[in-house]
Computed example of a mutant assay.
Amino acid sequence: MENADDHRRIVRERYASIASERSGCCSDDGCCDSDESEGEPGSRHLGDTEEDLNAVADGADLGLGCGNPTALAALSPGERVLDMGSGAGFDCFLAAQAVGEEGHVVGVDMTPEMVERARENGEENGATNVEFRLGEIEHLPVADGSVDVVVSNCVVNLSPAKEQVFEEAFRALAPGGRVAISDVVRTAPIPESARRDPASLSACVAGAETVDVVANLLTGVGFEDVRIEPKAESERFIREWDDDHDPSDYLVSATVEARKPVES
């Protein structure tokens, strides 16, 4: 990829198209589980339960994630949550139910079409404690120390400036706050043909980093208690992401957890 602006443009165009089509990505290559051979919706294979899927009105689950960060976060009533790369709002609505009316959820997405769709879904779901803001995850439109938890679902890998993403998450968190992220990590070198392919970049493949790189980025910006756990069972749905390559040869889904020190 020539530069960060081109990188973001390619990602933004892909997800604008998905939002405008009013459907998920599972008919195309990309960040989702397209295997419905057993009659189950894709998200069931990403960690969401039947109860999760039934709790949110149709239209918010585009099958774009690779895990369930809201479950990982173990949210409590009254907490303030920020979702980086909130898409059509599915994880935000799950988080809103967990934190209750005393809590608050902010979804941030850089694609205007996704923000518009998420706001429509918010009305459909009656989510009064959720708001959606247009912005880049490298420049979060929130105040310093204004949230207790930062979640994200298969989005950080799409950023050309991952250290800046984690710096922004750190800034947004109150002291003692935590991140709970589902994403992909690289387990082997990515083939040059895939690494240079714009479609692979926007499909959560070419931008993945290793566990060590992600851990060092998190600790480098100040996080502590960093835990990254690859999920071997993700191989089955990751192999569906690319028609020309088998991404499971060099990618795996992982959970990423860390905490901002109380004294910071």
Rank of each mutant, 00 (worst) to 15 (best):
G207V: 03
A254C: 06
P112I: 07
P191V: 03
M1A: 10
C26K: 00
V184F: 11
T111G: 08
T49Q: 01
K231E: 15
L251M: 02
L46M: 13
A60G: 08
S43M: 14
V99R: 12
C32T: 01
A19S: 08
A4S: 06
L64K: 05
V256Y: 05
V165R: 02
C154S: 05
F132H: 10
L217P: 01
R80I: 07
C25F: 00
V155K: 10
L75H: 12
S264A: 03
T187A: 14
E50G: 15
A4Q: 00
L158V: 04
C154T: 06
R22M: 05
E136F: 13
D6T: 14
E124Y: 04
N125Q: 15
F166H: 04
E131V: 04
V156L: 11
S193F: 03
V81G: 11
D33Y: 02
S152W: 03
S200T: 11
H245I: 01
D48G: 00
G122P: 09
A172G: 10
G59P: 11
L218M: 11
V142Y: 07
V150G: 04
M110C: 15
E257D: 07
R227V: 13
V256H: 07
V11M: 01
P261C: 02
G89P: 12
G59F: 11
A194H: 01
